[in-house]
Computed example of a mutant assay.
Amino acid sequence: MKNLFRAVLFAVLAALSWLPPAAQAAMSQWAESEGGRMRLVVISQPRNDAILALLQIEPKPGWKTYWRDPGDAGMPPQLDFAGSTNLVLRSVSFPVPEIGQDDGGRFVGYHQPVSLIVEFAKPLADAPSTINLNAIVGICEKVCVPFVASFSVPLKPGQPESEEFMQLQLAQSTLPEKPGKDFEIRNLHLSINEKLIEADVAIPNAQAPQVAFVGPPGLRFGEVEIDAGADKIAHIRIPIISEKAQAGRTITMLVKSGGRAIEATLALR
């Protein structure tokens, strides 16, 4: 059903792309680079007391871009919204990435167009707001090319947003699902000797899942070790090879299993 929903959205967006752009639409022009393009799309009407925007990144065929942690090579997106007006950044959500191997080693990222969903609080509900973004995104073929672009998009609450809303719906359909009892990250903690980060993960089947994660700044990690058995519990161990982890610091972990994916940001215990 989710795949059918995405297919319908793709068809609608393809049709919309042939129409002339709406006047004063809340989206930037495309910024172009050797390996692709990107733009900022803003949904000006608040949803659940939040302002949402999309950073759309489209690598050219044969090129790729990256998740929060790129793997062994590449660079994750660096997004600076500090110059925005009457908006406070809450979160940036990433689509489910590919996890695999390429010429650079372990790869976590995307070979296809992706949209990062950015959520803001708007402190003054009736005051004007503008999203200002300075972005550095890794776009790579055989070598990586930092893609640098700046965007400034004012919110336009009175303008029609049908295309922007469809873009948002499509982006939301690519996010990891919410953890549930049959698929969740449990018992994230430091080992007694503080040399490992360990977690138990309830998974949909008995096969070992794929795992990607981002830890606190300053920590470096070894190769992830994963054991999975018939009890549908995967035991994950992440060696710490630099500095020392501390309880209370957070880990963002993404787990893919059985065609599904979850992500959670948890504090170490």
Score class of each variant (00 low, 15 high):
residue 179 P to V: 09
residue 100 G to R: 03
residue 60 K to F: 00
residue 192 I to L: 14
residue 79 L to Q: 12
residue 171 A to N: 09
residue 225 E to R: 15
residue 236 I to V: 15
residue 257 S to V: 07
residue 141 E to R: 14
residue 116 L to S: 06
residue 214 V to D: 13
residue 103 D to Y: 09
residue 174 T to A: 14
residue 216 P to C: 05
residue 233 I to Q: 10
residue 86 N to Q: 07
residue 155 L to K: 08
residue 65 T to F: 00
residue 236 I to K: 06
residue 256 K to V: 13
residue 264 A to I: 02
residue 169 Q to N: 11
residue 82 A to V: 13
residue 245 A to N: 05
residue 23 A to L: 13
residue 190 L to V: 09
residue 188 L to N: 06
residue 85 T to M: 13
residue 261 A to R: 04
residue 16 L to H: 03
residue 224 V to T: 15
residue 111 H to Q: 15
residue 8 V to L: 13
residue 144 C to M: 04
residue 38 M to D: 03
residue 178 K to Y: 11
residue 256 K to L: 14
residue 231 D to M: 11
residue 95 P to A: 02
residue 145 V to N: 11
residue 14 A to C: 09
residue 190 L to I: 09
residue 197 I to P: 02
residue 30 W to D: 11
residue 141 E to G: 14
residue 174 T to R: 13
residue 189 H to L: 09
residue 32 E to W: 10
residue 260 R to H: 11
residue 237 R to W: 02
residue 31 A to V: 05
residue 50 A to I: 00
residue 123 P to H: 02
residue 237 R to G: 07
residue 254 L to W: 09
residue 204 P to V: 02
residue 100 G to W: 05
residue 108 V to T: 14
residue 104 G to P: 03
residue 28 S to L: 04
residue 66 Y to N: 01
residue 102 D to Y: 04
residue 7 A to V: 02
residue 221 F to H: 08
residue 266 L to T: 12
residue 255 V to G: 10
residue 212 A to T: 11
residue 135 A to M: 01
residue 210 Q to R: 14
residue 50 A to G: 00
residue 261 A to F: 05
residue 97 P to V: 03
residue 55 L to G: 00
residue 116 L to D: 08
residue 135 A to W: 05
residue 37 R to E: 10
residue 191 S to K: 01
residue 266 L to M: 14
residue 135 A to Y: 02
residue 163 E to C: 02
residue 153 V to H: 05
residue 15 A to D: 11
residue 195 K to Y: 01
residue 141 E to W: 00
residue 222 G to F: 07
residue 86 N to E: 09
residue 21 P to W: 10
residue 3 N to W: 07
residue 98 E to Y: 12
residue 131 I to P: 03
residue 112 Q to S: 13
residue 11 A to H: 01
residue 183 F to Q: 07
residue 215 G to C: 06
residue 75 M to C: 06
residue 22 A to P: 00
residue 130 T to V: 15
residue 267 A to V: 02
residue 163 E to A: 13
residue 202 A to Y: 09
residue 251 I to K: 03
residue 260 R to C: 01
residue 262 I to W: 10
residue 256 K to T: 14
